[in-house]
Design a binder for these strands. Structure first.
Lengths: 261, 261
DNA sequence: TGTTTTGTGATTATACGGGTGACATCTGAT
DNA sequence: ATCAGATGTCACCCGTATAATCACAAAACA
């Protein structure tokens, strides 16, 4: 219930609005006074909040005396919010499309390495990169939870011309991967140093390692204490990070060590 | 472009964050200084804004000196925002489902008339009501723009047991409706007073008029100056509004006047 | 070495939203 | 008719968040 209020605020409602909506959701119908008691919103501000909510299509007002309010059904509410959101994203999409790109003298260096944060973001980028592959994919997975449906799907959808190598840090995980991806060549990585890197005081474990067409690389790590995933991402055949990854492969460290399938 | 910034703020970003993201969207890649000049965000605050954006998965940071930033692709951005939003709606749904309903002595009067605001909200309610119909629907449409695909669909999906009468304020509109809904009985309403109601100084025109199973009624009006649609909605067989609507029908005013199909 | 650029942190100003009270109106009881 | 309580509207205060500015150390550059 505090949860609901919090989420509503994240969705753009003010505190009073959120409290009032939640209050109405459990009251089916109520007056300003009842609401004020229920939600601890000052009675005199209930009216403002309700008006805002009505304008957003989340409550209905009965213009009697005293006024009575009631919330729309949960499905109606979520649909309304969804519509609102979709409209906004649409507008954003249009607005950005009409503007976009100011060309500029390219003073950016060749060695580009970009940082990403967050499981979800990195997951998206990973599948995007996989989908864009034309010749080869080398993927090492460091944790079972990273083997998501989306990931499997993106690998499944690849054309036959793309060679897929998928590695794991343990035999256990390799078996699981082979089960999900019978088409792909799987292996257990020889990169023992990936398994647990000890720095000053913080321990970080490897998350993913993805090399696409030998020209794009993504490496992520996971901070065990927080579970937060961070990644770096390099692109371009001449990119330093990519070169290193290729060199590792050439030495047989990254893939093709003890291939079983 | 101001548009884009505004929408991004509506989607929960702070002003600086929004400006920086838009700035990056048209710069493909840039430093704090470039961004500051482009977006008029104080240079020293660009860094904070970018960090927030990175945490939300909307920009990437190149940790060189000077740092360079770039926005993720538009599709990645919208997907990220969509995911965020979906997760929130999901949480809201769960949270509200676990709580919900405090039963209470029913002191609400029998005469319930609720107010709704906004085209979209009223449209949703209209189709919801139609979908719940079991025996009869009487619908009068006052403006062509209200004959939306959703509305047509909801009427099409009704089981055969439901009698559908759809009226229009003009023969022109009636023909159009008959084209969209060959199954339904259409007519031109005899309610001339609906066409243009003159009050003190403001003129209002009728929007929709919906009677479902003779027990639920929805009437909307449109303020021509603003285009804003407002509606009232009554439910229950004994409801005053509903009774009036039934009486109108009984007098042959509402439907069945000069039925052609 | 001196100068500019870059990144971080602290500080100030301001606008928005939460919180409170005054007041006119309405309602229902006496 | 009168009065007390309830109701709805407004105006106002105040604290926090955020926009905006400044001070400064580290790095890059010449």
């Amino acid at each position: 219930m505090e949860e609901a209020i919090e989420v509503l605020q994240q969705l753009g409602l003010k505190e009073y609005e959120a409290r009032c909506f939640v209050g109405l959701s459990r009251l089916s119908s109520g007056t300003a006074k009842q609401l004020s008691e229920q939600t601890e919103v000052p009675r005199t501000r209930v009216y403002d909040a309700i008006r805002m909510l009505e304008a957003q299509g989340l409550v209905e007002i009965q213009h009697s005396n005293p006024q009575r309010f009631r919330a729309v059904s949960l499905s109606e509410a979520t649909e309304t919010l969804r519509d609102q959101y979709e409209a906004r994203v649409e507008r954003l999409h249009d607005a950005l499309n009409t503007i976009e790109v100011i060309e500029e003298k390219d003073d950016s260096p060749a060695q580009q390495v970009w940082a990403l944060m967050g499981r979800e973001v990195i997951e998206n980028r990973t599948t995007d990169l996989i989908r864009d592959a034309t010749t080869e994919i080398v993927l090492v997975i460091g944790d079972e939870v990273l083997l998501t449906d989306d990931l499997v799907e993106s690998l499944d959808d690849l054309s036959n011309g793309v060679e897929v190598l998928v590695g794991a840090v343990s035999e256990d995980l390799e078996r699981k991967i082979h089960g999900e991806l019978p088409e792909a060549t799987t292996f257990v990585t020889g990169l023992e140093w990936l398994q647990s890197e000890e720095t000053e005081k913080e321990e970080v474990s490897i998350g993913r390692l993805l090399l696409v067409d030998r020209s794009m690389i993504l490496v992520s790590s996971i901070v065990p204490s927080t579970g937060e995933e961070q990644a770096i991402f390099g692109e371009g055949f001449g990119n330093g990070l990519v070169v290193i990854a290729r060199r590792l492969m050439a030495q047989g460290l990254l893939a093709a060590k003890d291939p079983k399938h």
